[in-house]
Simulated assay, not measured.
Amino acid sequence: MRGIIFRWIISAGGLLLVSYLFDGIKVASVGWAFIAAIFLGIFNAMIRPVVFLLTLPINVLTMGLFTLVINGLMLFLTGKLLAGFSVEGFWSAVGGALVLSLISLFANSSVNENGRVDVVQMRRRSSGRWERLK
């Protein structure tokens, strides 16, 4: 459960960051960022796999780059359905989706199989190399 909440908070923060970076993406408030993160997660879980399968030949031809367009479409759809979150323009949606994908990659790599947040501790050895603490 902690892992889901952690991902939700990171996604909402990512939406706020994306709205700051791109003029075409606007979030009315922090509360709307959390609501938009929930809807975006639901769309990515339910609609995105169907769209991905339908566009699989295009995705293969573009060597996976069409996935950014699909992610942008999910962000655009979220913006069209929510009053406090808006996405204007194709390039804003694709750019925002790219940044959100990188943020999501960080969040998913920080949560282990059990849904717990992993904290990696490192220390520097006398030889100058870094080692991971267990």
Rank of each mutant, 00 (worst) to 15 (best):
L133W: 01
V119D: 09
V117R: 04
N71I: 13
A97I: 11
W32L: 04
M46A: 14
A83N: 12
F106W: 14
N44D: 15
Y20P: 00
V30I: 13
G96H: 07
F90P: 04
I9V: 11
S110V: 10
R7H: 05
S126N: 12
L133Q: 09
N44C: 01
G13E: 07
A28F: 13
W91P: 00
F66E: 13
G24S: 06
Y20L: 03
L105Q: 09
G14M: 08
L102I: 11
G95I: 02
W91Y: 09
I47T: 03
V120C: 01
M1V: 02
E113L: 08
M63H: 08
V27M: 04
V87W: 09
F85M: 07
G3W: 03
S127T: 15
N114L: 07
R129C: 00
N112K: 07
G41T: 14
A107D: 11
I42F: 09
G128H: 05
W130D: 02
L100E: 14
G31Y: 06
R116T: 02
W32A: 02
L15I: 10
E88R: 03
S11F: 09
V50A: 10
L105N: 08
R129P: 04
S110Y: 06
M74A: 13
G24T: 13
S29W: 12
N112V: 02
N59E: 13
Q121R: 05
W130V: 11
G84N: 07
